[in-house]
């Protein structure tokens, strides 16, 4: 009996697929989104209905039954390339329900290892962008931070910047996914039309001067006698350079 789950390819869809499998006590041989090939010979196909509220419940339940860390691992995995690891996520979920917080002790287990690795990649990028994100002041006083992350990390980053830059208005803007989060001084919200805030709102006059000072600092603090560009590129991958003022060619 080869069972195949089909879902819409979204993170919420995976969570609903997990919920279905748990509720129906089924072991699908594949959970596939529209971008991926299913089984060659599926005996039965189940179409998963995506429901945002239900997806949130799946996470909340896991936080309670598993642990906070395990729930965070799951969320991080869903911010990364999860389209090939749906079955591992289901297995991890089942293990978490059964074992509680000790699930993350199973470092030697294949499933746990795969989940940890994927979550670590996303976690690493989140930490990197806490440092590498750059704000530019626009004419109307909004600080704009464009970036192109590998993973969908914008909602994980927003609270970090709210904690430290609460007294200025800003917008994090993921250009790859066209997603944006705005802090207006009081409230954090997802901005569906980021272009609207940017239109007719060029970079402020003072911005050039501040960036110039930063570039001067960056250049002056380099020790020529210790040059090591490969180490630099390893710590700060080239794909992130585009939005760093200090890496602009002058």
């Amino acid at each position: 009996m080869e069972l195949e789950y089909q879902y819409d390819g979204s993170p919420d869809g995976v969570l609903c697929a997990i919920a279905d499998a748990i509720k129906r006590k089924e072991k699908p041989a594949a959970i596939v989104g529209p971008q991926h090939e299913g089984l060659l010979f599926a005996d039965r196909i189940h179409a998963v209905q995506t429901d945002e509220a239900r997806a949130d419940e799946v996470i909340g339940y896991f936080r309670k039954k598993g642990s906070k860390e395990a729930a965070r691992n799951l969320v991080y995995c869903l911010a990364g390339p999860f389209e090939t690891m749906e079955l591992e996520l289901l297995a991890y979920y089942r293990m978490g329900l059964k074992l509680g917080r000790s699930v993350d002790r199973h470092h030697a287990d294949e499933v746990v290892h795969a989940v940890h690795q994927a979550a670590r990649n996303v976690g690493r990028e989140i930490h990197r962008f806490k440092g590498l994100l750059r704000f530019r002041r626009l004419e109307d006083g909004l600080y704009w931070a464009p970036f192109e992350p590998d993973h969908d990390i914008i909602s994980a980053l927003a609270p970090h910047f709210r904690a430290r830059l609460a007294d200025q208005r800003w917008m994090l803007h993921d250009l790859r996914r066209q997603r944006a989060v705005v802090w207006d001084g009081k409230r954090l919200y997802a901005e569906l039309e980021p272009e609207k805030l940017l239109k007719g709102n060029p970079v402020a006059d003072e911005e050039v001067g501040v960036q110039q000072l930063w570039k001067t600092f960056f250049k002056s603090v380099t020790i020529e006698g210790r040059k090591n560009p490969s180490l630099q590129a390893r710590c700060m991958p080239l794909r992130y350079w585009r939005w760093l003022p200090e890496m602009e060619q002058t």
Partner: peptide, 9 residues
């Protein structure tokens, strides 16, 4: 938190 890396790494 590291914010950037200079050419000396």
């Amino acid at each position: 938190c590291c914010h950037s890396w200079t050419p000396d790494g």
